[in-house]
Amino acid sequence: MTIAPETVGELREIAARYPQSRSALLPMLHLLQSSEGFVTAEAIEVCADVLDISAAEVSGVATFYTMYKRRPVGDYHVGVCTNTLCAVMGGDLIFERLKDHLGVGNDETTDDGKVTLEHIECNAACDYAPVMTVNWEFFDNQTPESAVALVDDLAAGNVVTATRGARVCTWREAERVLAGFPDDRADEGPAAGPASLAGLKLARERNWRAPEPSSESTTGDAIAADQAAKSSRTESDVAVAASPADTADSAGPKSDSNSDGKAPDAGGTH
C-alpha cells in the first residue's frame, strides 16, 4: 500500500461524519484525488475497505461522476463552458483557441503537467458568460485573448486570482476542500460580482424595496445577535472586521430600522 496512513485516517474521519458511513464515499474519493492525483486502483480498494463494500461498488460510483478522473490531472484544471448559452456567447471559440494554443484535446494535459483542458457543462454563472473555471473557481466574462493570457499565467506559475473567488490553488488542494477539509480561503474575493448586483443596484437607485412588514410581526434582535457574533471565532482566528451597517441605503425587512433592540429569549415554549 502506498496510500499514507494519515490519509486512511482522514478517510475514516470523513466516514464518521455521516449517520451511515457509505454517504462518505463521494468526499472520500475527492480526498483520494487530492492525495493520489486521481482515482487510482488502490484508491478504489481503500474506499471499499474503509466502508466495507465491494470494490465494484466503489468503481461504479467513481466512474459515474465527471469530476472523478482515472488519469493524472495537471496542477490546473481549466474548464471552458460549452453548454448552449456560453457556447453561443463565445465559449466554443474560446475552447478552440485554447486547444490550439495548448496543443491538447479535450480532457488532455499539457506535456509539462501544468494544465488539463476540459469543456464543461453549465456551471451556474450564465450572467457572466462566456465562463471559464480554473480548479473550479469562477473566471467570468472571458474572451479568447483573456483565456490564452490566463493559461499562460498558470503555466508560468504566476499568482492568478478568480473573478469571484480566491487566489487559485492547485487542483489537488481544491479537491481536499471538496472532501470537507477547509483551506481557510473563504474570506478571499468579493461577496458578489457586478451582474449579481445588477438588480440590487437599480433598486437602490430607484428606492425600490420590498414592502415593510406590519410592526407586530417583525423581529429585531440585532444588538444581541451582534454580541453573539463577537464571541464567535472562525477556523482562521482572523479577526473579522466589524462590517459597516451600510444603513445609508439599506432598506427592506432585514434592515436594522425594525430593531426593537431587545435581547431575544431563545427559551422556547415547546
Binding site: G199, S243, D246, A251, D256
Partner: peptide, 19 residues
C-alpha cells in the same frame, strides 16, 4: 439579495448586524 452589497456579506457578523 438585499445584503449582497454589504461589506463582507458572507460573514456571520455582517449577517447578524442586519438582524
Amino acid at each position: 439579495s438585499d445584503n449582497w452589497d454589504a461589506d463582507r456579506a458572507w460573514t456571520l457578523a455582517s449577517y447578524e448586524q442586519r438582524g
